[in-house]
Computed example of a mutant assay.
Amino acid sequence: MNSLDLSINPSLARQILTGFIKSEITRAGFARAVVGLSGGLDSALSCALAAEALGPENVLAVRMPYQASSRDSLEHAQLLVDQLKVQSETIEITDMVEPLIRRDPDMSKIRQGNILARARMIVLYDRTEPFQGLAVGTSNKTEILLGYSTLWGDMACAINPIGDLYKTQVRQLAQAMDIPAPIVDKPPSADLWAGQTDEGELGFTYAEVDKLLYLLVDQRCLPEECVEAGFDKAFVEKVVARIRRYQF
């Protein structure tokens, strides 16, 4: 298990993904991109790739905070905007979502998080029209396989350049592209509620699950083969169940 190496060639990945962004956006008749910038690692990498592919003047980074959003998220997003020199906007979504959230005092954190994600995508797609750009996605392969994303929310996009990179590979490429250290080093979080972290909510680390997903998906290993390779049986069963549940 520990011998599995998910290292990528950052230079080659960078070349392929920037080429993909430019060719797909150009093929659709556009020259610009709009990215939802959360202050986290995935959106930072997508934004950096788009800026390199299209030129920073042709990228609009949209920050969409909610009243419970971490102040660090806004500050980290601004770090990236300043570094890349992309265009940017900040649009607060609290007034959009609060009337719906207040209707149900017992609303779960998951439901609230999905509302926030879908509200943000409404804003993002609205901004594509005046900016005349395509929405660029920010979901990595790990999140997609585990269903750790929101349909018609953060999964909605015209193109998704990082959709075939596992989370640990996103970090590798982000480091190679000099994404600011506070973004790269902080615990991954969708910032959907105060104190929320991806790994805390999932119950395992990205470093662990990426290796298992690589065996299950890329190498097409059977669950029992993954157990033989050293993965805990309960962990394998939990991950397989998530993959099957969100395969539709």
Rank of each mutant, 00 (worst) to 15 (best):
Q15P: 01
K238P: 04
C226I: 07
I93M: 04
A33F: 05
E208Y: 12
A174I: 05
I179R: 00
W152H: 13
R118L: 06
A234N: 13
E224C: 13
L45C: 05
D164H: 11
L80W: 01
A229I: 07
E237S: 10
Q219C: 14
A181H: 11
F231M: 01
E143H: 02
L212F: 10
N140P: 08
K238G: 07
Y166V: 06
R111P: 01
S139C: 12
S7E: 13
R220D: 14
I93W: 09
S43M: 08
W152I: 07
N114D: 10
Q15W: 12
M121W: 11
C157W: 05
S189E: 00
A229Q: 13
L116K: 15
D232Q: 15
N160E: 13
C47G: 01
M96H: 11
A158H: 13
D126I: 06
A194C: 11
G147V: 07
Q87V: 10
Q175N: 11
F30W: 12
M64G: 07
K141Y: 12
G55L: 06
N9H: 12
V86E: 04
A158T: 07
S11F: 11
D82N: 15
M96Q: 10
G29A: 04
A190P: 06
N140W: 00
T90C: 12
A181L: 14
L213T: 11
G153S: 04
P99T: 10
R242E: 03
C221K: 14
L192M: 11
A174G: 04
L202D: 08
L212R: 09
